[in-house]
Write a protein that binds this DNA or RNA. Structure first.
Length: 425
DNA sequence: CCCAGGGATGT
RNA sequence: GGUACAUCCCUGGG
C-alpha cells in the first residue's frame, strides 16, 4: 500500500515572472573570494588560507552542531574539540606540508524514501572538519563560475527558484521535457575528470593532493579496507561541492548547445519545443554523459515527458482547463490508499499510454479528484490535463477565485514550501 | 546581519 | 543511532 504524495504546485505571479531568469546569486561570502583567485599569493598559498583560525573555527562549529556520528576511529564530535587542543599543531603541519592522510570512511547503508538504499561513507570527525574547512574556501572559488542553471547545493539557491525557472521554459513554449537521471552518480564520479576540473581554478598542489587523498582514502567494510578508485563518498562535507564541480562540465556543454535546462545535483531536465528535438537531445546528451564524463545515464528513469506529467524535486506542473481553472478545493494532504469511488486505476494509466503515464503527484491529484467527484470519471482525463488533446477544453485566462478554499497541496503550515499553485497562461 | 536550539523539503 | 550540503519555517539570544 503505497502512500500517495501530496501534490505540490507552483504559483507564478506576474511579478515573479519578469525576474525568473535573473535569480540573485547568494552573496554570502564571509571571506573575500576575489582575494583567493586574483592575488598571486592566493593561488599557491591556498592551504594557508584554509588553515586560518577564522576558517577553522567556522568549520569546527559546523561539524560540532551537526551532531554527526563518529567515523572509523570512534571519535565523537564532542571529543574532537579537546583532541584538537592537543593535536592541532601536528594536523596543521601535515596539511601545510601536504602530507595529511585522511582515514578510510565508515560504510553505512540507509534506506532512501524512494525505496532503494543510499550508500554512505562517513569520514572521521577530524576528516569532516578538514573537509569542511577545505570546502568553505573551495566553494568561494568555484561557485561564482558555476552555471546559472545549476541550483543544487549552492548558497542562495533553492528548489523554488529551480522550479520557477523550469516553469518559465514551459511558459515560453517548451512543452517537451527530457528528463535525465544519472544512476549511482556519487559512486561513479571519475576522479581524473574531477581533479582536472578542480585544477582549473586551484593551483596549490597541496590542496589538490589533499582532495585526491580524500577521494582515494578507501572505505572500511567489515574491518577490511577497500580502496576507492571512483566516486565521492556521500557523507563528507566536500562531496556536494565536488559533485557540482564535476557536473559543471555538463552545464557548460549544455550552455554551449544553447539548451534550456535546470540541474539540481545529479538530476536535470532539458526543455525543448518539439518531440524530434527531444529525441535528438536525449541521444546526444546521453552520449556526452557516458563518453566524455564517464558517467552512466539511467535509461529506465530517463525519458521524454510532458511538463505536467513530470515530477522534479517533488513538484509537478498542471494544466488548468475551463472546467478546473484553479486548484480544486480538495484536501490532498492526507494520504489515500485507493482511488475509490468506482474509478479504475488501470484505465487511468492506459489513458495516456504506457510511455506517458502521469507522474505520481499528478496521478494522486486525479485520484483525489475522482474520489470526491466520481461523476467526473466519464470525462477524458486528457481534457483535464493536456490542452493539446483532441477533446481538451480551451484554456482560458485564469483568475484566482475569490475564495479558493483549501486547495490541493495547501496546508495550514505556512512553512510548507510546496503549497503553492501553478497557473499557465 | 550573526549566533544557539527545534522543525521541514530536496539531492 | 543514519553522513553531508542547500533552502525554508519557528523559538530564544546578541
Amino acid at each position: 500500500m503505497a502512500l500517495l504524495q501530496p501534490l505540490k504546485q507552483l504559483k507564478l505571479n506576474a511579478s515573479h515572472r519578469s525576474d525568473v531568469y535573473s535569480q540573485p546569486v547568494g552573496s554570502s561570502e564571509r571571506v573575500t573570494a576575489a582575494y583567493l583567485t586574483e592575488t598571486p599569493a592566493g593561488k599557491d598559498r591556498l592551504m594557508e588560507i584554509i588553515c586560518e583560525r577564522q576558517n577553522l573555527g567556522r568549520a569546527l562549529s559546523r561539524v560540532r552542531t551537526n551532531h554527526g556520528a563518529a567515523g572509523i576511529d570512534g571519535m565523537t564530535v564532542d571529543q574532537l574539540t579537546s583532541y584538537l587542543r592537543q593535536h592541532w599543531p601536528k594536523v596543521r603541519a601535515d596539511l601545510l606540508a601536504g602530507t595529511y592522510q585522511p582515514l578510510p570512511v565508515r560504510r553505512k547503508e540507509i534506506p532512501k524514501p524512494s525505496g532503494g538504499v543510499r550508500l554512505l561513507g562517513i569520514p572521521t570527525a577530524l576528516d569532516r572538519l578538514v573537509q569542511q574547512a577545505v570546502g568553505q574556501i573551495l566553494q568561494q572559488i568555484r561557485d561564482p563560475s558555476f552555471s546559472a542553471s545549476s541550483y543544487g547545493f549552492r548558497p542562495g539557491r533553492n528548489q523554488h527558484q529551480t522550479i520557477q525557472r523550469a516553469q518559465q521554459y514551459v511558459v515560453d513554449g517548451c512543452r517537451q521535457v527530457v528528463d535525465m537521471d544519472l544512476s549511482k552518480f556519487f559512486d561513479r564520479v571519475n576522479h581524473d575528470r574531477l581533479m582536472s576540473r578542480l585544477a582549473t581554478k586551484v593551483h596549490d598542489k597541496r590542496v589538490l593532493k589533499l582532495v585526491r587523498r580524500f577521494l582515494t582514502a578507501g572505505v572500511m567494510v567489515g574491518g577490511l579496507q577497500e580502496p576507492s578508485h571512483e566516486g565521492t563518498h556521500q557523507g563528507g562535507p566536500l562531496s556536494p561541492l565536488l559533485s557540482n564541480i564535476v557536473l559543471d562540465e555538463l552545464d557548460k556543454e549544455l550552455e554551449k548547445r544553447a539548451l534550456r535546462f535546470v540541474r539540481y545535483a545529479d538530476g536535470f531536465i532539458i526543455f525543448v519545443r518539439s518531440k524530434r528535438a527531444a529525441e535528438r537531445v536525449m541521444v546526444s546528451v546521453s552520449r556526452f554523459v557516458n563518453q566524455r564524463l564517464r558517467l552512466k545515464v539511467n535509461q529506465e528513469k530517463s525519458g521524454i515527458t510532458h511538463p505536467w506529467w513530470m515530477c522534479f524535486l517533488g513538484f509537478s506542473f498542471y494544466q488548468p482547463s475551463r472546467r478546473y481553472p484553479y486548484p480544486h478545493p480538495l484536501q490532498i494532504d492526507q494520504p489515500v490508499q485507493t482511488a475509490g469511488a468506482g474509478t479504475d486505476q488501470s484505465q487511468l494509466w492506459t489513458e495516456h499510454g504506457a510511455d506517458h503515464r502521469p507522474s505520481q503527484p499528478v496521478f494522486s491529484w486525479l485520484v483525489e479528484l475522482l474520489r470526491h467527484n466520481p461523476e467526473l470519471a466519464q470525462f477524458s482525463f486528457a481534457s483535464l490535463l493536456d490542452p493539446a488533446a483532441p477533446s481538451g477544453d480551451p484554456v482560458e485566462t485564469l483568475e484566482e477565485p475569490e475564495n479558493p478554499g483549501p486547495g490541493i497541496g495547501e496546508t495550514e503550515d505556512p512553512s510548507y514550501q510546496g503549497a503553492v499553485y501553478g497557473l499557465f497562461p
